[in-house]
């Protein structure tokens, strides 16, 4: 998906990308990952907002865009990561480790 430019912050392993984001300036909408599902599984936000994922399962998960245009990387239990969505559009994503876990983000103008 090339219509969106995003910046990524992940709790672990992506420090370089995290540094690029001005300290949590934009509001974040939280998506919980629990019992092997994204909750809620569809989120609508406005362009310029962030989604923050928090993993509540023991099993590590990811939130990975279907076309790999963004990826939180591995989230252990209690870890969070966020992605900034600057352009309107719809994103389908899944967990790279448990591909049956699917969800959607709708970014409006």
């Amino acid at each position: 998906m090339q219509l969106t430019r995003r910046q990524l912050i992940a709790a672990g392993g992506l420090a370089a990308a995290a540094a690029a984001l001005p300290a949590a300036a934009s509001p974040a909408v939280r998506v919980r990952i629990r019992k092997f599902a994204f909750d809620p599984d569809t989120v609508s936000i406005k362009a310029g907002e962030r989604i923050e994922w928090v993993n509540e399962d023991f099993a590590p998960h990811t939130a990975t865009e279907d076309d790999y245009s963004w990826d939180t990387g591995e989230l252990g239990k209690g870890s969070t990561a966020s992605v900034l969505f600057e352009t309107p559009g719809t994103h389908s994503y899944y967990c790279a480790y448990h591909p049956h876990m699917k969800a959607r983000i709708v970014v409006t103008a």
Partner: peptide, 13 residues
Amino acid sequence: ETMIRDHSAVNSA
């Protein structure tokens, strides 16, 4: 790989 990742996480808990 998923078995190693998940079972390691559960067992470390």
